[in-house]
Design a protein around this nucleic acid. Sequence first.
DNA 1: TTTTAATTGCGAATGCTTTGTAATATGCAT
DNA 2: ATGCATATTACAAAGCATTCGCAATTAAAA
Lengths: 153, 153
Amino acid sequence: MDTENVHCCGSFSERANLDKWIERLQSTGMKLTAPRQAILEYLHNQSHPITNREIYNGISNDCDLASVYRSISLFIKIGFVQQFDFGDGIARFELVEPGSHSHHHHIICNVCSKVIELDHCFPDSLSETIAKHTGFTQITHKLEFFGLCSNCK
Amino acid sequence: MDTENVHCCGSFSERANLDKWIERLQSTGMKLTAPRQAILEYLHNQSHPITNREIYNGISNDCDLASVYRSISLFIKIGFVQQFDFGDGIARFELVEPGSHSHHHHIICNVCSKVIELDHCFPDSLSETIAKHTGFTQITHKLEFFGLCSNCK
DNA sequence: TTTTAATTGCGAATGCTTTGTAATATGCAT
DNA sequence: ATGCATATTACAAAGCATTCGCAATTAAAA
Ligand SMILES: [Mn+2]
Ligand SMILES: [Mn+2]
Ligand SMILES: [Zn+2]
Ligand SMILES: [Zn+2]
């Protein structure tokens, strides 16, 4: 198993991976502050979208809640983080490498809220059909699946 | 043009259509109150999802805002209304005939918020693939499209 | 080290939504 | 039609995620 591809704390490659995000942040001209490092590290250890409050609780007294919100907004603006909506009115966020895996969806259990990351999506032809039909351009979409997980069924 | 299929106030067929919803409400055992009739009528005249506040403003002093929220919750529970999320943190609601058109999506302009109702969706095979891959059952999905409308492009 | 502007912490405010409660209106039985 | 039982309402207050104002702090450049 390649440790590069799993989210486990403490391995050398994970640390190097986190350092890449920190370098990337510095290269944008933004300041490298303690709260931003803590949030980046916490995000990096997650494998599913998490809420601002979860980040706040996860890094405890390292940072104010308002600063978590502000940092997350910044990370979204510079393309580090993507926002997802699981339908409960609480925004969730995930660190995404630019390019490759950035576009993806989730399936959420209606009972226990278990989340599985999905690679599946519909073909681009659907968006193209909708573009022709509506006259819209630059079409994107938000898509999340819901259901009963194997434990809850 | 068939007046049965458009949302225009005052035609006989539209009135009959609204009456069906009122009968349906009575048949559930729920009380037929003035606020519920006003909300039902207002929803019925719309062709896109609308917010609780839009309903409240649309029926003005016929009903309190909290009662709009409570009525909409009821309508969702009994299957009259579906909730949609356009990504701005404000819930939107639409009256949907049971069965046929109940499952559908929208495309929303990122600039002017123009909405177009869509019949398009991806094939069930995608949900089935995801079911096999994740072990989830009873899979549903939320899907909305975004882009630039022909006016804003 | 000094400077300077970005960033933070803290509190307050915002906006959508929910809830408690006494008053009211509906549907039903009389 | 009248009275009754209770579902529903109006109103006010609270809840909760999120945003904002501002003085104090801090990172990065000079
Ligand atoms: Mn994800
Ligand atoms: Mn619709
Ligand atoms: Zn589950
Ligand atoms: Zn537009």
